[in-house]
Amino acid sequence: MLGIELPIVQAPMAGVSSPAMAAAVANAGALGSIGVGATNAAGARTMIAEIRERSNRPFNVNVFCHQPAKPAPAVEAAWIDRLRPEFNRLGAAPPAALSEIYKSFVEDDDMLAALLADRPKVVSFHFGAPSPDRVQALRDAGIVLLGSATSVDEARMLATAGVHAVVAQGYEAGGHRGVFNPDASDDRLGTMALIRLLVREIDVPVIAAGGIMDGAGISAALRLGAGAAQLGTAFIACPESQADAGYRAALASDAAFHTVMTRAISGRPARCLANRFTVLGAAIAADEIPAYPIAYDAGKALNAAGKSAGEPGFGAQWAGQGAPLSRPLPAADLVAVLAAETKAA
């Protein structure tokens, strides 16, 4: 279905995965991916063109399908005031106001037009699925559709919506939790249980994601019934990754053993390496944090202030629970190692 030789998907990781990484992974026989949720249609088309300059193999373009944020001026003003002492310690001023910095694919007509024009082999959805007409337009263009689910109910909704395969995102996974409603109860299913449930409950293939870092993990996912495994944290330390020096240093430190699920950085639950931002967010109630991605406007400003002051601990250093197993290899070499380990297992 995906046109790949190996049952390996490199997770799209907006802001971390690069066209160079996606192309290297694709050329090595796996599915390379980019995340375009943090850019606009022009940026997405540029990234797609860069991949195609390096590879003629299939690749995946991931979009965010969150519900557009509802501004809450009082909550946003209080959030700025809460973060003000941190900005002051870093010798910077907080933003005067916050805005919705990312447009959701559910209302981004330009992004839809770009994907229909460029026709990548695969498009994947995170945080839900777009409207039936958008799904149908992508399917009519011959694009294979993936959707991320954290529960059986979400997987059923995705299958009904028309995706070709479901990414089973376990609670171990790094980065943004793919829950459709971040304010609803979360059963926090682990990857192993979620795979088995989805294999039984839905009629489309399942791709395992969350905590998988090596061939032993890929093999285990396949034995549990997954058709492939998606790895994100495993690729962060690759030279093709866009992770900055502070992120890479944190991944190689004791922080990798202590990942934390936090919504303070972006406004949505996401698993991050333990750092100053996760400590800050630990004591803050969810209803005090602005909606995603409005909160991310403040988070990015605080990270920029921290980096200017030589403090990398306010970054969105997303990583899964398998982070200590990270290996700093070129992406193509990592795919080759993963393939060999999977075969051996």
Rank of each mutant, 00 (worst) to 15 (best):
R327N: 07
Y102F: 15
S33E: 09
A24F: 03
A113N: 12
N88S: 10
L302R: 02
G32W: 08
V152P: 13
I294F: 10
A309R: 05
L302H: 05
H126N: 08
E172S: 03
R57E: 08
G246H: 05
K70C: 01
A159F: 08
I4D: 06
A249D: 07
L83P: 01
R223W: 10
I289T: 12
G174Q: 09
S326Q: 10
V335P: 08
G310A: 00
V199Y: 14
A345I: 11
A141N: 14
V167P: 08
V163S: 05
A129N: 05
R134W: 14
W79G: 15
G210M: 13
F257S: 02
M111L: 15
R263S: 02
A14S: 05
G320S: 11
S266T: 06
P132F: 00
Y292H: 08
A20T: 00
P269Y: 03
G128F: 06
A221C: 14
V163F: 10
G35T: 01
A249P: 01
V260Y: 09
L329A: 12
A49R: 15
G178F: 14
L158M: 03
K343F: 02
L2R: 03
Q136A: 11
I289Q: 02
D187N: 11
R248G: 07
E311V: 13
G3C: 02
A228W: 13
R263Y: 02
L273S: 04
P324H: 08
I8F: 06
V75S: 01
G232V: 06
V179L: 15
V63A: 00
A184D: 12
D254R: 12
A165Q: 07
S326R: 07
V61M: 01
G15D: 06
A249F: 02
M157L: 15
A193F: 10
R200N: 08
N60Y: 11
C272S: 13
D244R: 15
I289K: 07
E341L: 00
V36D: 05
D108Q: 09
D254H: 11
E154M: 15
G170V: 00
C65M: 07
R45G: 11
L325E: 00
V335K: 07
L194F: 08
L222R: 15
N56V: 05
